[in-house]
Amino acid sequence: MEQKLVGTIAIITGASSGIGAATARRLAAHGATVAVVARRADRLDTLVSDIEAAGGSALGVQADITDRAQAERAVSTVIDRFGRIDILINNAGLMLLGPVLDQDVEEWERMIAVNQRGLLFMTKAALPHLLIAANDELRGVADIVNISSIAGRQAWANFAAYNMTKFGVNGFTEALRQEVTKKHVRVGVLEPGAVETELISHNNDTIKDHLAVSDAKNIPEKLQPEDIAESITYMVTRHRRSSIAELWAMPTSQA
């Protein structure tokens, strides 16, 4: 049985496009007020307008969550406006690929900053409020969903640093789950396979061309952001007795 999200407040990072934007729309359609966090204010404004036009409630929060102060300020902004946080979706992510010998170390640092530090900063800032929400009468439960990747389960050549960040997300998620699950803060990790998003667009042309050819051959039908948004919604709308600790979402055509 699905739990309604009316009255809940959800924070979604990386919400200016792709999975984040699709998740914001879906959670808003289920009754949640969504605070959408990203660096691109113009896209957040458009997303908020779209959600409100569809009858939902949303707040855009411009922030670079790799900066601890900005991540903490984003959470404070939501608390100041709404007084609570019920759901945190740590979706912001960056995938930069290449061989270890040749890859620019600055690319590794950027991935660690977004995929790990940003997730840590947002979780640390939001967790006290999630614990409070889990204790009240609205739902009696709160949720953290961390968006990892199949690359958090399986390693490939040229994915080494990205693999490291996502394996780390998986480990952090499970450790945190064990810390807070008996307090009814559910912590789950979602590991998508190939999804049609902007994720590969930050790579150089050689990497992008290689991935385009490989995907066209091996994954003719990728998942869409809405597919992952549906899975996230499933995780956060379970009855409080039910916790989805790990969900692996793959295109049918991806081996």
Rank of each mutant, 00 (worst) to 15 (best):
L130R: 10
R240E: 14
V48D: 05
R40I: 05
F159E: 04
V180E: 10
N115K: 11
N163A: 10
P225E: 00
A255V: 12
V169R: 10
Q3E: 13
V185K: 11
R39D: 12
G93Y: 02
L130F: 08
Q103W: 00
D209Y: 00
D80C: 02
R117A: 14
E109W: 13
L190Y: 05
A133Y: 04
E137L: 06
Q224R: 13
I244H: 00
A29V: 00
A255T: 10
A69I: 05
H210F: 15
V145M: 03
P192K: 13
S16P: 01
A54F: 00
Y234N: 08
A113K: 10
G20W: 04
V61Q: 07
G193M: 05
H210L: 06
D215L: 15
G140E: 08
I112D: 05
D102G: 12
E226V: 12
E179P: 06
T8L: 03
V48C: 08
A194K: 04
F172I: 15
A28Y: 02
E137K: 13
Q3F: 02
A35Q: 08
V213P: 03
V37W: 08
R186A: 10
L5E: 06
G171E: 06
V6C: 00
S76V: 00
E72T: 09
L127M: 15
E198S: 08
N91V: 04
A161R: 03
A53D: 11
A133D: 10
P225S: 00
E196S: 12
N170M: 12
Y162D: 05
A32I: 07
G98V: 01
D205W: 02
V145Y: 03
G193W: 02
H202S: 13
A229L: 07
G171W: 07
I219W: 03
A125G: 13
A126E: 05
M122T: 12
L120S: 13
R110D: 15
G31S: 12
T66W: 08
G140C: 04
E246Q: 13
A229W: 09
L131P: 07
V78Q: 03
S201M: 05
A63G: 09
E226I: 04
W108A: 09
V100N: 00
I9Y: 02
A161Y: 06
D45V: 12
A92T: 03
V145H: 02
G168K: 13
A142N: 07
R117N: 15
D86M: 07
A54R: 07
V6I: 10
S253D: 12
L120I: 15
V37C: 09
N135E: 15
A15H: 02
G18D: 01
N146W: 01
A194D: 06
I85Q: 01
P251A: 09
A92H: 05
V34M: 04
N91R: 07
N158Q: 10
R110Q: 15
G168C: 11
H129F: 14
L199M: 14
V78G: 04
A71Y: 10
A29Q: 13
R240Y: 08
V37F: 01
M164G: 14
R68E: 15
G98W: 00
P99N: 01
K217W: 03
R43T: 01
F172C: 07
H210M: 11
R238Q: 15
A194Y: 11
D67Q: 14
R26M: 14
D104T: 04
E2R: 11
N91P: 00
L138H: 11
M122A: 12
I11V: 13
R186I: 05
T233E: 13
